[in-house]
Amino acid sequence: MTAILEASGLTKIYRRGREEIRALKEVDFTVEEGEFVSIIGPSGSGKTALLNVIGCLDTPSKGRVILDGTETTKMKERDLVRLRREKIGFVFQQFYLIPTLTARENIELPLLFSRKGERGRIEEILDMVGLSDRGDHLPGQLSGGEMQRVAIGRALINDPKIILADEPTGNLDSATSRMIFELFRDLNRNGLTLVIVTHNLDLARQAEKMYTLRDGQMAGCERPDLPGNGRDGRR
């Protein structure tokens, strides 16, 4: 298996006035192609910082990130825009849907920026996230879980190499959260690479690998491999 993401010695220092906050301290982190990875850790441990740095939304203070074979750490903003467009799909806790766009239009939105004309995949993606009959609904007419499905669809439209989700179920009840994780597992079964930050240990255990961040450092990696995951034979 090839590593789609390789981060080594990642350090992120935020400055707040005189104060220096070390959000990440020499973190090494690798994700193989087709892997489903979860990250847990207490609040303030640096989960969002890590996700943003590997997702090229933020630059590390030290260390380097190699995404799909290219080093992103020294890239110019222009190339980073392309990289985010083509290789990464982001999902956020707050969904961030545009309320006056329908589900279908929200999913389509990244195509406006990537200037891809073809919209054939939209129906396929609506189907993939289980919203075939909800395409024309506005976000206000959808439940929280459905809104997050729209956001996931939007992350998928550009056919990314990797999906990065920051607490995607943080605003959802537990039943809905489980359904969203079901969706993630389905997507993973179809070959998609996923990195998901969550507070929910039960859900995190559904991943193939579960990393724990503590105080800006990688404190451990488990392979839950719970029976009934249906993936036991894969490794």
């Binding site: 997702g55 939304l57 825009v81 467009r85 799909g89 982001f90 990244p110 920026f113 939007r154």
Partner: peptide, 16 residues
């Protein structure tokens, strides 16, 4: 602004 952050994350450039 947060939404602009989202737009950048899904591939919008500053110019966009």
């Amino acid at each position: 602004t947060r939404e602009f952050g989202m737009l950048k994350a899904i591939g919008a450039s500053g110019l966009d």
